[in-house]
Design a protein around this nucleic acid. Structure first.
Lengths: 348, 348
DNA sequence: CCGGTCAATTGGATCGATCAAATTGTAGAC
DNA sequence: GTCTACAATTTGATCGATCCAATTGACCGG
């Protein structure tokens, strides 16, 4: 096993200087086509590949994104992160970027990791996945001028339009509206909503989608709609309990739209086959048991995240300053996946 | 925002040369304690962090592991990879290593990625997750002397003991044996096994575990045992079909041990509440529906993988050559998670 | 008091690439 | 024919760390 070839070796073979080789790789347009071909031939012949670390040292760019692997995603929707990671890695690869993982025990620890990875020039920027109100992480990143993009809107009122905070999100409101419409189309009029108790956040956004559809088409008044809602933690057993309580209270329930597949599964176990249920996230479980569900287009999210982070694409990961003012966030539309009535339902 | 401090700056503040600073970081034992303290104080004062790329350029080590994010893991067990990734990243971090992701469209493409990442000095070694018989990837890695470890035994007869192939695996046989024993303990005698049709591989290993337990305790003869087996692809509907066919054939089935949670869910939907079922992988679904399942200790797998890859730990990622002959593979024992009878069962 | 040994520290060279400035070549204007 | 402008390419310096050989200083035996 001999030494790996360097720009110098390639230059020697092609009969040009090392810098010209470098130019062929980084600014092909300034090299004469004829020369470029010679160099490219030499690169192919030698199997040359640029040494990433050397390049990073000089350019002070790592072409690498950091993303935290969240331990808390181990719910039924855990595989979402999996799919997002895959989409992100694939899209990043297409743009010549790499994805590096890290873990952290909490927000403060995560900030320490940001500093460590940034100072070590390991990564140029970050992708955050689970943001919350007044997130100290985004504040730190903004203050320290570290490029980042979040998957998920900043739910604080001020933050939402902060130009320094790039974000991509899925329009859950629209997704649940579609789901509810689908249930109304199926002949139901009393479509219940099973959501999470949190405020100002994802859960409320999805609830609004249900409300939109119901107000427009169900013919029920606000009081009746209020009575058709149930809240529960994102847990199957808790969901079952919540939906049972709703039904026991005497409210008529023709169908159920849910804020997650976990909740949907919990509902399904209670309401049985006659009552259609729609979930959210389209997790493998939904596919397995034949549950209709709203699918988040994670590929589009990944594409959006990288588009925002790369700005015009010519200078690598630069963050918000390079993006045009209109292109600092992106809302992608989810898609309802309709399935046959679930086998679980049939069993009941 | 000023320049980040370098070894030179630290040395200046501590009143020593840059090399001494480097020594404090890399070979503390050769530095006089008194000096070391001064340097450490300077490091803390300046908030110095070594520049990873510069170090890598000089040492020709990246301290980074590559792992492929497999698109095919999007089954019901998809979250397994998630959990493994998390465990691996955490353990790697503890040893000063980073984890970088990549994707590939197939084995040949993956080999191209190996070459690219290795030549670019992006990673020092790889962790492979889904190995198969006569895997061209492990052959390439061995030939090219790239350190790697696989999660999963090489199932080819010769490969299994190849000293150049480091591997960690979970003892599925033992796991399913425990699961079967548990079912036998519960009073069942005719415990069926629902597995995959593949040969020489994970599925067969698990099947053997069932057979071990049944031969020892069920009192059934080999012919009866053969009749208690069903095979199916790893899919809920297919599993339901397979188990139904088994029951329809007139065989008595007291309980079912399965090679995966997907299969278990499929079985559960058919056999209902009276018949206990045990799955494998302890996926979130199992937790959600109250299914007993065999849990793979992914933390231990991650620890094992890194132990093997790092050898004695003093020279970074070195691969098989540095490992002691006895420490070239590791088999970790899974643990049965027993749960209350599932709500799905109750519904039936 | 000298030479030898060893621990502790230092300065020069280097890893492989890119940046910035200098150089060469080529064409067009006057 | 000279001079300017610009395109194409080359050379010198540099990024921040570590390797390696050289140096300093303390201690000991003779």
């Amino acid at each position: 096993m001999s030494q790996l070839p360097t720009v110098l070796d390639v230059g020697r073979v092609a009969g040009v200087s090392r810098q010209t080789v470098s130019n062929v790789l980084n600014s092909p347009q300034i090299v004469k086509p004829e020369t470029r071909e010679k160099v490219e031939a030499a690169i192919a012949q030698l199997g040359y590949r640029p040494h990433a670390s050397a390049r990073r040292l000089r350019t002070r760019k790592s072409s690498t994104l950091g993303i935290r692997l969240d331990p808390m995603t181990n719910g039924i929707s855990g595989s979402l992160l999996d799919r997002f990671l895959h989409a992100l890695t694939e899209q990043a690869d297409r743009r010549g970027l790499r994805v590096m993982l890290f873990t952290a025990t909490g927000p403060e620890d995560e900030i320490r990791q940001f500093a460590r990875l940034r100072d070590g020039a390991d990564v140029d920027g970050f992708v955050l996945t689970a943001t919350f109100v007044n997130d100290p992480r985004t504040e730190w990143l903004i203050e320290n001028n570290v490029p980042f993009v979040t998957f998920g809107r900043p739910w604080g009122i001020d933050d939402m339009n902060d130009p320094r905070h790039l974000w991509v999100d899925v329009d859950g409101r629209s997704g649940v509206r579609d789901a509810t419409d689908h249930l109304l189309d199926g002949g139901a009029s009393h479509v219940a909503f099973l959501g999470w108790p949190t405020k100002f956040s994802t859960g409320d956004d999805r609830r609004r989608g249900w409300r939109d559809a119901m107000e427009a088409r169900s013919g029920l008044d606000p009081t009746q709609l209020d009575a058709l809602q149930a809240d529960s933690e994102d847990d199957v057993a808790a969901a079952s309990q919540a939906i049972r309580a709703l039904i026991d209270s005497g409210v008529r329930v023709d169908a159920v739209a849910c804020a997650s597949d976990s909740l949907a599964l919990g509902a399904l176990l209670v309401v049985g086959a006659e009552v259609p249920v729609v979930g959210y996230d389209n997790t493998p479980v939904a596919g397995a048991i034949g549950l209709s569900s709203v699918e988040q287009p994670l590929d589009e999210v990944a594409v959006g995240a990288l588009d925002l982070l790369l700005g015009d694409g010519s200078h690598g990961i630069v963050g918000w300053e390079s993006s045009s003012p209109e292109q600092r966030h992106r809302l992608v539309t989810p898609r309802l996946v309709v399935r046959e009535r679930s086998p679980i339902g049939r069993l009941a």
